[in-house]
Structure formats: structure tokens, C-alpha cells
Design a protein around this nucleic acid. Structure first.
Length: 856
RNA sequence: GGCCCUGUGGCGGAAUUGGUAGACGCGUCGGAUUCAAAAUCCGAUUCCUUCGGGAGUGCCGGUUCGAUUCCGGCCGGGGCUACCA
């Protein structure tokens, strides 16, 4: 390398650490409550400490950092913290596999990842860092749990779980593979277990209503939350059970949203977990074999999807509410859910596909009762496809001729007059089961006493810490097997009792961390009133769309519960004012001739295009660009990228081209393009630094205008999360500067503005450029530039002239030219004349400042 | 199955309320520089063309002086959810 090119080259490896040290020393990014400034809280979803950052983190945090730095420059007091979502299964697995304590494993990972993250140059307040596995964090989570117990937000109930009979442990759905335990390979059973639940379903209506107010959330996420809550309005009513010798029960309560089809009913189906079915099991031959068989099916989505719809005729008959002579058979069925509605339904095969399949299978009648408007009632029949559309009611006695809506109303009215039922709202949203039979999580602060029942642990006894000497090889739950952990005296009666040895779902940890960031070091309480009053809510939350439902819904629930237990101010019921969901980082996939996945650094390009395997030159198949994943090996390590090109280049590339909400494809060419741009800009800076040419005033004016247009545009683009467009404008200004024949002073002024505009994206580079170009103080502390509106528009504008909607010419007119003059000029254009061919135009439309359309 | 989003050059993508389609970048091509290359700089780059123009934002149709944008239908791609009665 020649000496000249060495000086002209931007050396990220040298410059980036230098500025990070300067920011650190000045504590530039420490958040301070400042009564004179508006506050701005920007938060990216905190990472799980897997041990290495991945490229998705870089994209996510680069976006957050753009916002944080931008808002800081705009005069806000910014809170931009970082922490670790540190409890979870991988640490426990490492403990089992390698005999290392989860805490050791986790804290080592955190240390490694923190170092990696710091090289990105994010404007984070590291003084607020914490991990959810710190006892000083989960202590307060236990406190909140106790308060939530007392506030009625938590209760115990039994529920079905996946049980591994060999490992004696509960499995998460994703740990069940083909109906077998992932570790033991034993067939998984469904078992009933008493667990703790957050009563989120009590808040269903409130959580649903408040979605309307989340105007700065993506519509997509709001819709997903609405669907998840799944409100439905229907009718809950009783069928009278015909007298029989099997049961004392007099009636069966069902829930339906299609009460208009009541005269099309041909059976009732009841969940196998319904008390009625349980009571019948010993009395009805074969029923218990049927339910046992059904229970063998796991609870995973996959298992449910594959399961055949099966029923078993219990022999019971119920009477139609409007006709005592009409009896319907009662089936036990595997597709009816006990925890939705009443656990029992009536089937109307003609108008519900699943009911139709069931009826065909068991030879039940299919009577259409809703007739589409283009069909005749006498001839309309249902084949293999149920009719679910609108129409008029037929074959339904007093309902005949009504619309679906009117028939529903009529049935509801009559049923409720008969006192056999009433309209009811149901939600799909279930209570949130939080008990996990894991040992690397926040211990549930409850003591079980034989006399007093479940008693909350005394607040003074918190934290209930995880023991350090857990035997992870122990059968069942290691925490339960620990010799001393669970033994404790009942806080109420003083007798020997046992601790709950379950831990909380890790979603609980991330349901309030945003509040803790406001006062991460408060020892006595989860939150400090003046801190949360100042910083909450999060003004901008950024993360992956994969958390659109659970994490965000749980956080919304916790915020409400915390508010009602006094830990958050009134105004903080919705914790996240604005939400942005960024896209994933994708990469091409490569496979060798043996079908094995190859990493990008295991292949090399060949001249004919395409790639071969680097090790042996074997042919490589290039697959589509998909989300980076270890299994497909299509990953690039951000640490390598930063080492090779610098953090600013990586950040710049992540923010260019693709809109932030969309997926971005990582390509070597793209990163190199970004790197070349850094170099090009650097040359402009170095050249301008020492130049003293005078240049022309007219050129200066042109460049000044370009500079102000860029300031205006970039400001609006960052405000609107359109980083790719901001990048394009910065390119435009760069081009304008390098083309300019103006004065060196004007070029320096434009470059200083450019440094300011680019600073949120490439902060180290910008800081270096700023200092070389004579910028005052640290750029990270400088105020955002403002555009002069008078420089944004030119006096003369170019107007397109259309003939019949096709552009034929352009004229240059003054900004506020008279309409008639513009029309005359347009018609005088030669290319317009050619089309007019001497005849007058039919009509001329002049949109001032925009366009002229000549209609002929 | 249900709900939702999306479709623009070779590629990623721009395009205020309906008003110049293809900003900006990548790639490609041509030129300059160089002994040569890399790097860099300059120029071209939607397609067709008889150089007058013609076609063009998945396809078909509609509204409009004017449609990438609004409406209806179809086709392709993606996401979420999934026995929710």
C-alpha cells in the first residue's frame, strides 16, 4: 500500500475505539432526569445471552440507536438502556450436558456478549444494565408476584400438561417431537397438574378495547392481538337431558354463535374432559377406553392437526329446546375443548364443516336451514361442503324467512324468556399458566402449608434465591430434589411447610423489565415513583414481530397489574407508546453435492458464476435467501464483519436499501458497497479539510440548497422510520458535494451538516469527520441541524405537460406563475402542437405547481 | 380452513392527498487513469423502435382529464392463527 492511499483511507479499527472511549469518559449517554427537557425512552427488546451477538441484534440495535441519537440531538433527555433476558432452558441444558452451573454459563455469556455489543458503538446507558437472573432483579419480581396474588391477579388451578413418564418432568410443547419426549423418547402423556395462573382473561375486554388507542403500533400487530384475544358473542343455553339411568344430571349447557341454525341441529358433542363424560366413564361400556385413547394424543399443535375427529355415542339423549319430542344424541368427542365456552356444543352439519364431517362419519342427518339467496329452499342441499354464508332461514318453523341475524335475535329472545340461557361473550384468550418445572428461573414466592394452603412468602424473606448447589442430574425437578431449598416454616401458622419448587415462565421476567430500567438500582422496591413517573412509558419500542403477541400482551397485562398494585403511575397502563417491528436478516443458502449445508466461508466463487466448495471444489447448489440460522449455516458473524470493515460500515449497510420493517438480504457485495461509501466520504472530508479555494457564489448557493433539502428530508425520514430513504438522501448530498465547484468553506459547511445527518447511523465516522472539519465540541452532544424553509424550493419549477395523460414536454415556469400563462405556454410547446394538429384542445387541466394535462 | 399483508428494471428499493414511474444504491456496459491490475473518477443503463414514437408497476376489467396509488374479479408470494363451536 502506498503512503498516499494509507493516509486517505478511513481506518475504522483505530478511529472507532477512540471515540467510544471519549463517549465513555464523558458519560455522554447516561440518562438523567432533566426537568428542562422533554424525555424520550427508546428501548430495543433485550437479548437472551446466548454467548454471541448475531446479525439480527446489529440491525435491531442499530435502528434503536438511530432513534436514540437523533432524539438526543433534537433536545430530548434520552433513556436508552440495555440488559439481559437471562433465565431460560439453554442454560439448564448446558448444566446437564457440561456440568457447569447455569449461573456461571449465563454470566460468562453476558460478559462475552457485552464486549461484542460495545464494539457496535451504541449510545447505551450501561450504568443501568441488569440481568433478569440477578437476585436483585428477581427479588422484585417475587414482590410483584405477591402483590398480584393479593390483588387477585393470580390464582391456582389444575391444567393439562405434557408429561414425560421417564424423565418425570413436564415438557413444553416444543419439546414434544412426534408425541415423544425430546430427551427420553418416551411417549408423552397428558397429565393434570396444579399450577399458578395469571388471570389475564379477566382483563380480556380491557386489553382488547385499549388496542384502539395504540395508534403508533403497526396495524398488523394490533390485529394479531385482537385475534388472539378472540372475542365472540353467542348464546349459552341448556339442553334438557332425557330421563335415563346413567346420570342424575338434568341438563347440558352448550355455547354457540350460530343459534340461528338450531333447527338444523343433529347431535351434541361434549369434551372428553367434561365432568359429565367423566361421570359416565364407569357406566358406559367402551367410553373410558375412548377417552384414554384420545388423551394419548399430545397437546402440541402438530398432534392436534393430525388427530382425526372422533366421537363416541354416550347413549344419552337431549331434548331440543323448542320441541320436547325431538331428541339429539350426545357424543363424547375429541375435538371439543373443555376450556372454551362450556366444553359442549351442538352440531349443525349443514352449516359447519367440522360438524358435517362428523355427521357423515357417524351417519347423522344433515338438514340445511340457511338457504343462499340464489337457491330454492326445496332443492337446496349440502354435499361435502358446509354452507357458511348468509341467506334466509328455512326448515325452521317460526324462524323461516328471517335473516341469519334476525333469527339469532329471535332464538336468543325465546331461550332467555324460557330461562334456559342467555347471550354471552367468550374470549379465546386463556389464563396465563406461569408455573414451570425448571430450575433456572425466578422461584415462585409461595409456601404450601397443609393447614393454611398456599401462603405468599413474607416480603422480608425476599429474594427467595436459587440455591447454588443444584443437582441437575437429579430425577424430576432439581429444585424439588434439593435437600434444603423447599423446607420452610409456614409464615402463617409456623408449622413445617414446603416452598413451591416451580419457577416462573421467563415471559414474566420480560413483562416488566422496561419499568425496572427507570430505577435499576432501587433496592427496596421494584419501582421508584418519581423515576417511573418521569421515564415511563417507553416512547419507542423496537423488536421482532415474533413477539407481537405473547410478550407484548403479557407486558400490557403486567403494566395494568403493576399500576393497580401501586407500582406504576396511572398514565402507564400501556407500557409502549409506539412499537416498531423490524424485519429479519436473511442470507442465501448453500449446499454441497451431499446435501449438507455449507457456510458462506466454506465456499468460493468461480468465474462461470456460482460457487464451489472451498475444500475440494465440489459443486455448490445455491438456495433461496432465508432467515439466518445455525441449522442452515447461512450465517455471518457480526464480530468478523466489524473487525474487517468496522461497526459503522455494518450499521450503514443494515440501514440502507431495505425498509426497516422488511427483511434484508445480507450480501458481501452490499457490505463492500457500504464500505466503499465510507471511504469515498472520507476522501471528501480529508480533501475539504485542507482546501482553501474560493469557488463561485452561484455554486455555493446550489450546494447550500442541496444541504438544506437533505437536512429537511433526513429529519423527516428518521422521524418516520424510513432509514433507507434517509440513506438515499445522504447519498444525494454526498454527490452534490463532490460535484460542487463552490468554495472550500461551503464544502466544509455541507460536510459538517452531512456528518450531523449521518451521525445517528455511523456515529464514530461522523464524530471523526466533525472534529476534522472544525465542528464545535463533541458531535454526540451537538444539536440537530435545522433546515431553512426558504432554501427548500427553487423559484423556477419544471412542470410536465401531458397530452391525454402522457407526458410530452416540460416547461420551466416561475413558482407562482399565473394559471392562464402556464396554459398558454403549454399549448405553445412544439410537441403539444404536433398532437393538436391545428385543432383546439377539448380541455386543459392546470394543477398549479404540479402538472398540465391537455385533453384532445 | 380463517384472518391479514404483498406483487414496480438484472437486483434491493423510491414515488406528499390520484399528478413527470424507476430517486438512491448494487450490478452490468462504455470511457478516463495505469506498463498492467486493484482502487478511483466520468458517462450510460425499463423494454421495443422505421428515432416520429409505441409499450410498461402480477393478470383482466372499472372510476378519472390523469391510476403504482381508488374499486371489482383472477393469479402468484409471504405472515399470523389454527379443532374457538
Amino acid at each position: 500500500m502506498s503512503e498516499a492511499s494509507a493516509t486517505a483511507r478511513y481506518n475504522a479499527a483505530e478511529i472507532e475505539p477512540k471515540w467510544r472511549a471519549v463517549w465513555d469518559d464523558a458519560a455522554t449517554f447516561e440518562a438523567r432526569r432533566d426537568p428542562d427537557k422533554p424525555k424520550y425512552y427508546v428501548l430495543e427488546m433485550f437479548p437472551y445471552p446466548s454467548g454471541r451477538i448475531h446479525i439480527g441484534h446489529v440491525r435491531n440495535y442499530a435502528m434503536g440507536d438511530v432513534i436514540a441519537r437523533f432524539k438526543r440531538a433534537r433536545g430530548f433527555s434520552v433513556l436508552h438502556p440495555m440488559g439481559w433476558d437471562a433465565f431460560g432452558l439453554p442454560a439448564e441444558n448446558a448444566a446437564v450436558e457440561r456440568g457447569v452451573h447455569p449461573a456461571t454459563w449465563t454470566y460468562e455469556n453476558i460478559a462475552a456478549m457485552r464486549d461484542q455489543l460495545k464494539t457496535i458503538g451504541l449510545s447505551l446507558d450501561w450504568s443501568r444494565e441488569f440481568a433478569t437472573c440477578d437476585p436483585s432483579y428477581y427479588k422484585h419480581q417475587q414482590r410483584l408476584f405477591i402483590d398480584m396474588m393479593e390483588g387477585g391477579f393470580v390464582h391456582q388451578k389444575s391444567s393439562m400438561v405434557n408429561w414425560d413418564p421417564v424423565d418425570n418432568t413436564v415438557l413444553a410443547n416444543e419439546q414434544v417431537i412426534d408425541g415423544k419426549g425430546w430427551r427420553s423418547g418416551a411417549p408423552v402423556e397428558r397429565r393434570e397438574l396444579t399450577q399458578w395462573f395469571f388471570k389475564i382473561s379477566d382483563m380480556a375486554e380491557e386489553l382488547l378495547d385499549a388496542i384502539d388507542g395504540l395508534e403508533k403500533w403497526p396495524d398488523k400487530v394490533r390485529l394479531m392481538q385482537r385475534n388472539w384475544i378472540g372475542k365472540s358473542t353467542g348464546l349459552e343455553f341448556r339442553f334438557a337431558i332425557a330421563p335415563n339411568e346413567l346420570t342424575e344430571e338434568r341438563d347440558l349447557t352448550v355455547y354457540t354463535t350460530r343459534h340461528d341454525t338450531l333447527f338444523g341441529a343433529s347431535f351434541c358433542a361434549v369434551s372428553i374432559d367434561h365432568p359429565l363424560i367423566k361421570s359416565l366413564e364407569p357406566k358406559v361400556d367402551g367410553l373410558s377406553a375412548f377417552t384414554t385413547d384420545c388423551r394419548k394424543t399430545g397437546t402440541s399443535e402438530e398432534a392436534i392437526e393430525k388427530a382425526e375427529k372422533k366421537g363416541f355415542d354416550t347413549g344419552l339423549r337431549v331434548k331440543h329446546p323448542f320441541d320436547a319430542e325431538w331428541e339429539l344424541p350426545v357424543y363424547a368427542a375429541n375435538f371439543v375443548l373443555m376450556d372454551y365456552g362450556t366444553g359442549a356444543v351442538f352440531g349443525c352439519p349443514a352449516h359447519d364443516q367440522r360438524d358435517l364431517d362428523f355427521a357423515r362419519k357417524y351417519g347423522l342427518s344433515v338438514t340445511p336451514v340457511v338457504c343462499p339467496s340464489d337457491k330454492e329452499a326445496e332443492t337446496f342441499s349440502v354435499g361435502d361442503e358446509a354452507y357458511v354464508g348468509p341467506g334466509r332461514i328455512v326448515n325452521s318453523r317460526f324462524l323461516d324467512g328471517m335473516t341469519v341475524e334476525n333469527a339469532k335475535a329471535e332464538v336468543a329472545k325465546r331461550i332467555s324468556a324460557m330461562e334456559q340461557g342467555e347471550e354471552k361473550t367468550n374470549y379465546r384468550l386463556r389464563d396465563w399458566g406461569v408455573s414451570r418445572q425448571r430450575s433456572w428461573g425466578c422461584p415462585i414466592p409461595v409456601i404450601h402449608c397443609e393447614t393454611c394452603g398456599a401462603v405468599p412468602a413474607p416480603v422480608e424473606s425476599l429474594p427467595i434465591e436459587l440455591p447454588e448447589d443444584i443437582d441437575f442430574q437429579a430425577q424430576g425437578k432439581p429444585l424439588n430434589a434439593h435437600p434444603t431449598f423447599k423446607h420452610v416454616d409456614c409464615p402463617k401458622c409456623g408449622r413445617a411447610a414446603v416452598r413451591d419448587t416451580d419457577t416462573m415462565d421467563t415471559f414474566a421476567d420480560s413483562s416488566w423489565y422496561f419499568a425496572r430500567f427507570c430505577n435499576p438500582h432501587a433496592e427496596d422496591a421494584p419501582t421508584v415513583p418519581e423515576e417511573v413517573a418521569y421515564w415511563m412509558n417507553v416512547d419507542q419500542y423496537i423488536g421482532g414481530v415474533e413477539h407481537a403477541i405473547l410478550h407484548l400482551l403479557y407486558s400490557r397485562f403486567w403494566a395494568r397489574a403493576m399500576q393497580r398494585t401501586g407500582w406504576l403511575p396511572e398514565t402507564a397502563s400501556e407500557p409502549f407508546d409506539a412499537l416498531f417491528t423490524q424485519g429479519m436478516v436473511c442470507h442465501e443458502t448453500y449446499q454441497g453435492p451431499d446435501g449438507k449445508w455449507l457456510a458462506p466461508d466454506e465456499i468460493k466463487p468461480v468465474e462461470s458464476g456460482g460457487y464451489v466448495r472451498a475444500s475440494d471444489g465440489a459443486a455448490v447448489t445455491v438456495g433461496p435467501s432465508v432467515k439466518m440460522s445455525k441449522s442452515k449455516k447461512n450465517v455471518v458473524d457480526p464480530v468478523d464483519i466489524i473487525e474487517q470493515y468496522g461497526a459503522d460500515t455494518a450499521r450503514w449497510f443494515m440501514l440502507s436499501d431495505s425498509p426497516p420493517e422488511r427483511d434484508v438480504e445480507w450480501t458481501t457485495a452490499g457490505v463492500e458497497g457500504a464500505w466503499r461509501f465510507m471511504q469515498r466520504l472520507w476522501r471528501l472530508v480529508v480533501e475539504a479539510e485542507g482546501a482553501d479555494d474560493a469557488g463561485s457564489a452561484a455554486e455555493d448557493e446550489t450546494l447550500k440548497k442541496a444541504m438544506h433539502r437533505a437536512i429537511d428530508g433526513v429529519t423527516r425520514d428518521i422521524e418516520g422510520f424510513a432509514f433507507n430513504k434517509a440513506v438515499a438522501r445522504i447519498y444525494e448530498l454526498t454527490n452534490a458535494i463532490s460535484r460542487s465547484d463552490g468554495s472550500a468553506e461551503m464544502r466544509r459547511e455541507a460536510l459538517r451538516a452531512l456528518a450531523q445527518l449521518i451521525a445517528p447511523m455511523t456515529p464514530h465516522f461522523a464524530e471523526e469527520a466533525w472534529s476534522r472539519l472544525g465542528g464545535a465540541g463533541m458531535l454526540a452532544e451537538a444539536a440537530w441541524p435545522t433546515a431553512d424553509p426558504s432554501l427548500l424550493e427553487d423559484d423556477a419549477i419544471t412542470m410536465p405537460i401531458q397530452v391525454n395523460g402522457k407526458k410530452r414536454a416540460e416547461i420551466s415556469v416561475s413558482k407562482d406563475a399565473d394559471k392562464a400563462d402556464v396554459e398558454a405556454m403549454a399549448l405553445a410547446e412544439e410537441s403539444v402542437q404536433r398532437f393538436l394538429d391545428g385543432a383546439p384542445p377539448k380541455k386543459v387541466i392546470v394543477v398549479p405547481g404540479r402538472i398540465v394535462n391537455v385533453v384532445i
